[in-house]
Simulated scan of single mutants.
Amino acid sequence: MEETQGKFILMIQKKGALQMQSKMKALVTHGAHDYRLEEVDRPSAGEGEMIIKVEGCGICAGDLKAFKGGSVFWGDGSAPPYLEVPAIGGHEFVGYIVEMGPGTDKKKTYGIADTDLKVGDRVAVEQIAPCGTCRYCKEGRYHLCVPHNVYGFKNYLNGGFAEYARLTKESLVYKIPEDMPLERALLIEPYACSMHAIDRAAICKDDIVVISGAGCLGLGMITAARKRNPKCLIALDLNEERLKKAKEFGCDITIDPNRESLKDKIMELSDGYGCDVYIEATGHPSSVKQGLDIIRKAGRFIEFSLFLEPVTCDWSVIGDGKELDMYGVSLSYGCFPDTIKGLYTGELMSDGVVSHKFALSDYEAAFEQSGKGTDSVKVVFTFE
């Protein structure tokens, strides 16, 4: 790790050589199933902007679903698609600042991001670049920004599937420790989203909490939820290796719903009432219906996932049936600082979550591995 950091610092110091490099390799999105490794112009920093040399970038479930043609990204014909092409994907990235435009010290920060940044700093960036002018931004709830511009999905906001990335003046940028292992640094963005889900769940010490899905995001939720010390923390997954990791990260009980009766087990643990909190983190419709079935009356249902297509369920359960509190979760509102600290100190467990590393040139294999759902948790690109 020290050798890699030294290379970055040496490269930054040789600014003349950097300025001469006018091209870079990038994975460019042209359409669903149409991603191409190309040589493109390296970005330069304008007013309030920064250029970072990308160290690595994780592949998010959203990236994968965009690649597969999910209508949430490409539209269903009734409205323009969210994803604007050509674009460079990736929003789970970290890197070193190599260029700063004028006025960078006047960036809007919403009171949470760092402002004392300089060339050579190692940084992470939130996935959203909030507009600063809509109702939600003015209220401080920047993660709900109406334009909702997220790195990698807009052609003016290119992401980390490239050697360099331009951080716009709206971006929320955070310094990260030089000695934080890259495998931890690349979990900052997904774990911050996980932490926001746990914040929304408002877990109490007497709660029976079920987290459905023990992938990267589910594991992030598990390690964050363990800090809240609930009465019983339960993970659900169909993958035995992920359930083992969930147990290692602090779950009291792990369950494969295909191997045993989930409802019977939850009712046994809860004196027949059901779980107090159910967090849906799989993106599969069956997990939604399953949660509505096992949650108690007046329970808290947390919907985190992004689905390929619309999901249907019996809404009468939510109202007349159980009077549930339903909470959505969007992005990572205010969670980057605590996530960076927790990952750095090890308070948030992360060993083994980054399971596969690929060069950008091997993007087809990386997407294939990420989509398997077995033998991997978090798949990332790294740049040497």
Rank of each mutant, 00 (worst) to 15 (best):
T4A: 14
G6L: 06
F8Y: 11
K15R: 02
G16D: 14
G31H: 04
D34N: 14
R36C: 04
E38W: 03
E39N: 10
D76H: 11
S78F: 10
P81W: 03
P86L: 08
E92H: 08
G95Y: 00
Y96V: 11
Y96C: 11
D105V: 03
K106P: 05
K107E: 01
R122V: 02
I128F: 00
P130Q: 04
K138R: 15
V150P: 10
G152K: 14
N158R: 10
A162D: 01
A162N: 05
A165F: 06
E170G: 12
E170W: 05
A185S: 12
I198C: 06
I203A: 00
C204Y: 06
I211S: 03
G218Y: 01
G220I: 13
I222N: 09
K227R: 15
L236P: 02
G250F: 09
C251S: 09
T254C: 08
L262D: 00
C275Y: 00
V277R: 04
I279Y: 00
A281T: 15
A281E: 06
T282E: 15
S287Y: 02
V288C: 03
K289T: 09
D293L: 00
G299F: 00
E309L: 05
T312N: 14
W315L: 02
S316V: 07
K322G: 00
M326T: 01
D338F: 03
L343G: 10
S355L: 05
K357I: 03
K357P: 02
L360N: 05
S361E: 10
D362S: 07
Y363P: 05
V379Q: 05
F381V: 14
F381Q: 05
F381T: 09
F383I: 14
